[in-house]
Nucleic acid binder design. Structure first.
Lengths: 172, 172
DNA sequence: CGCCTCGCTATCATCATGGAAGTCAGTTCC
DNA sequence: GGAACTGACTTCCATGATGATAGCGAGGCG
């Protein structure tokens, strides 16, 4: 009766969550992106129990998001650094940050993404690299890919007459 | 000794995770975006225990991501629909989907975002709405916002000489 | 030598999860 | 009009996951 794994589900969201969906994992990644590498740094920044931190780090290393390496033999010291797969997670963190800022920061944002050149706050939007059109628009849809099974097709098929992933409209 | 809450942390990522960071929550949202609204739909699609689904739905409603409403009195039937705040979560889901596709779909993607006009697969990139420049670039940084406390500033200050949220370079 | 740091591991009380079964209002079948 | 169904849950309970605290081993510091 252990926690159900999402690993075998065909959905890429489920597969991804299987690696980063646990309590603490994403915050650890956040700190890794902020430049932290050492056990004590994470532990102090997060206020997490050492046992838990240890388990999460092992899981993230196994998932290929972090790499553990010894940077000193005497004294023995380890560090955890983001792998390319881990670095690639940044956009998820940034969209989550933006969402959090817009909905759960009544006193104003505590972190902002700014244009280093102008100092102006940036407003992240997802666009298609080729056309630069916002992916939120009704011109983009989700479709079953080459490796889709029945279940996936069923889920996508029941997609509503709204557009991408079910949106109705963008409220400014 | 209950599960630690992220709600009081100033970080927008932590605040957001406090609402959607539990096991199942994001998959429920995924299905909601796919057009599902009813208890039985979610339960069947996810293979989740009814008790768990019930708790997660209540939490998502309390967090303001879903709205529960009765659409029939006889027989009594409820449905769960995305609120504006929930709809606003879509970009996070899409970046996660893209990340999952690129890293955990060895047999090829099972879901793809495509341009409805051309049918070509879209490649999501985060850009600044005003300048359309990719936010991944070194020209964007994270800075402490108006509501940042000491802890937040400390974390941002120790940011490495890499660029945004610690990236080194984009690997194609 | 005594004390401190870093990176953990060990223990243990308590909480959350997952599975199965039951409830309640109404609907449909025959 | 009674049996069987459906949808949306609730209750219960055996376990696994968490969180707090304590301790350990290798080494450094004064």
């Amino acid at each position: 009766m252990q926690r159900k794994s999402f690993r075998t589900m065909p959905c890429p969201i489920a597969r991804g969550l299987d690696r980063v969906g646990e309590w603490w994992s994403i915050l650890i990644l956040r700190d890794a992106f902020a430049g932290m590498t050492r056990f004590e740094e994470f532990r102090e920044s997060l206020g997490i129990a050492p046992g838990m931190l240890s388990r999460r780090l092992v899981a993230l290393v196994e998932a290929g998001l972090l790499e553990r390496r010894r940077y000193s033999d005497t004294p023995p010291r380890e560090e955890y650094v983001l792998t390319p797969r881990g670095e690639d997670f940044r956009p998820v963190l940034l969209t989550l940050l933006d969402w959090g800022n817009r909905h759960f920061a009544p006193e104003g944002p505590s972190v902002q993404i700014v244009d280093a050149a102008t100092g102006a706050p940036a407003e992240p939007v997802l666009v298609d690299r080729a056309t630069l059109r916002p992916i939120e628009a009704p011109e983009f849809r989700l479709v079953a890919g080459p490796a889709a099974g029945r279940g996936m097709k069923a889920r996508l098929a029941r997609e509503r007459p709204r557009d991408l992933l079910g949106r109705k409209e963008i409220s400014a």
